[in-house]
Nucleic acid binder design. Structure first.
Lengths: 74, 74
DNA sequence: ACGTAATGTATAGTTTATTATACATTGTGT
DNA sequence: ACACAATGTATAATAAACTATACATTACGT
């Protein structure tokens, strides 16, 4: 339980980026697919370090991938 | 051990913000002082959620408080 | 000299992120 | 119909973040 306050656009971004697969993203940022799955599902928020690596994988600033609060405002 | 790849400007920012104390910042973002100490010392990188709360406490975007890699470039 | 506020350091314990493994489901190509 | 790639789901184990407690040090006000 315990509401997760951080959301992300990982899923959307994977498809905008060459239909990148969960496994490919996982390899690219050096985690397992399970971690990507959990993040897309919103099970928990990543470590800051992983958040940076994921943003870099999409060539985006961190705050365009992850957002605080319920409202992406975009 | 295990090099921490994420750095921050928390210490500097505390002093730029009314000489804010470790305890005050801790209270403001809802963690213990020990966590702030550990972050300033670079013992580990915070959760993304905490990183957001700290950035908001200073009214700054996350990437002006935390940076990936060894070089702040500023 | 004394009290107190801020910081530094250490360590054991709890919670959360991350891994590893495993199996089920859906879609696509042959 | 079969093989395979991608995803969904679950659960136990490990690693990392975070708490709680405690004590030492430095500086500052009285």
């Amino acid at each position: 339980m315990s509401k997760n306050l951080v959301g992300n656009h990982i899923r959307k971004l994977r498809f905008n980026h060459n239909e990148m697969t969960q496994q490919q993203l996982a390899d690219k940022v050096g985690v397992t697919r399970q971690t990507i799955v959990a993040l897309e599902k919103g099970n928990y928020s990543p470590s800051l370090e992983l958040a940076f690596r994921i943003a870099h994988a999409f060539h985006l600033p961190l705050e365009e991938v992850f957002f605080y609060g319920d409202d992406p405002t975009q």
